[in-house]
């Protein structure tokens, strides 16, 4: 599912809102979440998961063209930890699929 598909699904269900408003809202939410992480803030969405920053320490790297060693400075990278509800729902469907496959072969 892409961002535009997500906007379409929400617009279909929230039919009292104009498509354009749903589009703006989805973009606004994504921008606010990006902004939070860009300023070092965590995001905690109950039942979905949390986003935080993980630090990657400085390391020596190589310029792939010249082979020279270069020192790469430490940096932060975004990290997502799925919440309990998301983990369980994703896995429940998967277990049903597995069971159905087994029956199909048996």
């Amino acid at each position: 599912m892409t961002k535009s598909e997500l906007i379409e699904v929400i617009a279909r269900e929230q039919s009292h809102l104009a498509y354009r408003d749903v589009e703006l809202a989805v973009k606004c939410m994504i921008e606010q979440m990006s902004q939070a992480l860009a300023s070092g803030e965590r995001i905690e969405i109950r039942g979905f998961g949390s986003f935080s920053l993980h630090f990657r320490p400085p390391r020596m790297g190589r310029n792939p063209k010249t082979g020279d060693s270069v020192e790469l400075s430490g940096k932060y990278v975004p990290h997502f930890k799925p919440g309990k509800e998301l983990r369980e729902r994703v896995n429940e469907k998967f277990e049903i699929e597995l069971a159905t496959q087994r029956e199909g072969h048996g």
């Binding site: 599912m1 892409t2 961002k3 997500l6 699904v9 929400i10 269900e13 929230q14 809102l17 749903v22 809202a25 989805v26 939410m29 994504i30 979440m33 990006s34 969405i45 039942g47 979905f48 975004p78 997502f80 509800e85 998301l86 729902r89 994703v90 429940e92 469907k93 998967f94 699929e97």
Partner: peptide, 27 residues
């Protein structure tokens, strides 16, 4: 409030149904 709930619920539903979710600009 409904908009925020639906946003995360639709992402969860897609993942639950085995479909990846691509939010360009985010991840």
């Amino acid at each position: 409030k409904d908009m925020v709930e639906m946003f995360f619920e639709e992402v969860r539903m897609s993942l639950e149904n085995g479909r990846q979710v691509k939010l360009s600009g985010f991840g």
